[in-house]
Design a protein around this nucleic acid. Structure first.
Length: 427
RNA sequence: GUGGACGUAGCUCAGUCGGUUAGAGCACCUGGUUGUGGCCCAGGAGGCCGUGGGUUCGAGUCCCAUUGUCCACCCCA
């Protein structure tokens, strides 16, 4: 095999696509219920946009971006930056003081692929721009929980606050002092992290580090009064909406722009990839990207691959929509083929799903195809049927056959049964 | 970028101590039935055994390199 998809890039084949559509349909339903509007964004943006928003020294920007160096453009590694760019560029803050937007699409990061992680992956991204209200934080998390619940997934929610530019530096210094005292007990990665991003030591997976960090100062004890009040109001809001969550003072974020509330939807069923969704507040980012002053924002992203993996592991988690042909037409002989081709077209124009073999294969072979297609009805047309204008219509389940006029309307009347008033509610 | 495991038919996998023509199941095609699906039966097609080198009388099997995939680390949705 010579040509194949790139490492970390995957085809989504028929059979699996239906599950993706199911997830997207459910997501769109929930998001619009919460008054969010869809926005569609380019996958290619100026490199500068990501460098400025995500952070020059983050792993994503330093070594994971697909960048056309000569053209100074990059395949987006996440959606928030692009969405904010569009928000600022089109002055959406003028049209509506608080914008609620979502987008669904592919992202690109040059990482080593593993379970639940690809180089092209797909996210559903939700953002609320222009609101400082803690009720928005609570509502976003509640919405994420609702979607996961409607998908039938058991996922836990962990929340934390990272403070703001007022209170975080103080905490950072204190944490650095704490880490310096027990540097020799930390793993090599954490020794490095202490210098680059000390907060990350808090969520190291190494058991030794976890043990050390248990007695570390807590960010939650160092919030300024504004951040503390906000976080308390977020938690009150969560309780009012009855969204279960756990407080995790060790949770931090990988992207530089996060402030205050952060959260992750966590599962234990995806190997090393615990997070199916994550997000938080980024109150300084919009201004930093050239938007209006003091415009706060908050949002989260869910990993579609991870949701799909979870649903695939869960038998019967969803009901596939029936897209099988309603009628399979079998034509025997050249003349019948031409006549049936025309008939199929007329019925399709009328809105029916009609399948037909155009290869002139044997009746037996076509019956097999019809069976596999899942069609309930099969129309058989040979020379005799063509001459007297009556096709043989067979019900594949009951094996009953009858003669029906070779006319689109007559066939449609049999193939699409009128809806019984009593059955409507069952569907 | 680092580590480990694994590459045999479209898919899932056997293949003994190195031995002559490389196998099974599923899927596909044809027939068993002048024009009737599923089940069954018979037959067929489909392989550079990832690639390149080496050892050997002989390599799918052993060795080396390379490449790909997966899992984990890092990081992240």
């Amino acid at each position: 095999m010579k040509l194949k998809a790139l490492n970390g890039f995957k085809d989504i084949l028929p059979g699996e696509v239906e599950l993706w559509q199911h997830v997207e349909t459910r997501a769109r339903g929930v998001f619009t219920r919460f008054d969010f509007s869809e926005i569609r964004l380019p996958v290619l943006e100026s490199t500068e946009l990501f460098a400025r928003s995500i952070g020059e020294t983050t792993d994503i920007v330093e070594k994971e971006m697909y960048t056309f160096v000569d053209k100074k453009v990059t395949m987006r590694p996440e959606a928030t930056a692009s969405l904010l760019r569009a928000y600022i560029e089109h002055g959406l803050y003028v049209q509506r003081p608080v914008q609620r937007l979502f987008t669904i699409g592919p992202m690109f990061r040059h990482e080593r692929p593993q379970k639940g992680r690809l180089r092209q992956f797909h996210q559903m991204d939700v953002e609320v721009l222009g609101s400082l209200s803690p009720l928005v934080d609570a509502e976003l998390m509640a919405m994420g929980s609702m979607l996961l619940q409607e998908l039938g997934l058991q996922v836990s929610l962990e929340i934390n606050s990272l403070g703001c530019p007022q209170c975080r530096p103080g905490f950072r210094t204190e944490l650095l002092n704490f880490l310096a005292e027990r540097m020799e007990h930390l793993c090599d990665d954490c020794k490095r992290r202490s210098a680059t991003n000390p907060l990350r030591v808090l969520d190291c997976k190494n058991p030794g580090c976890r043990h050390q960090v248990l007695t570390a100062p807590s960010i939650l004890d160092h919030l300024c009064s504004a951040c503390a009040d906000h976080f308390a109001a977020v938690q009150k809001g969560m309780e009012r909406l009855q969204v279960p969550y756990t407080l995790n003072r060790f949770m931090v974020r990988g992207l530089d722009y996060y402030t205050r509330t952060t959260f992750e939807f966590i599962t234990t069923d995806l190997g090393a990839q615990a997070a199916v969704g994550a997000g938080g507040r980024y109150d300084g980012l919009i201004e930093q990207l050239g938007g209006p002053k003091d415009t706060p924002g908050i949002g989260f992203a869910m990993g579609m691959e991870r949701l799909v993996l979870l649903l695939q592991q869960k038998q019967g988690a969803w009901q596939e929509e029936n897209t099988a042909p309603q009628l399979f037409i079998i034509a025997l002989g050249g003349e019948a083929m031409q006549s049936c081709h025309q008939l199929a077209h007329a019925m399709r124009r009328g809105g029916l799903r009609v399948a037909m073999d155009l290869e002139g294969r044997s009746l037996k072979s076509q019956m097999k195809q019809a069976d596999r297609s899942g069609a309930t009805w099969v129309l058989i047309v040979g020379d005799d049927e063509l001459n007297n204008g009556q096709g043989v219509l067979r019900n594949m389940q009951t094996q009953e056959q009858r003669r029906v006029a070779l006319a689109a309307e007559a066939l449609a009347a049999v193939v699409t049964p009128p809806i019984q008033p009593g059955n409507a509610a069952d569907r």
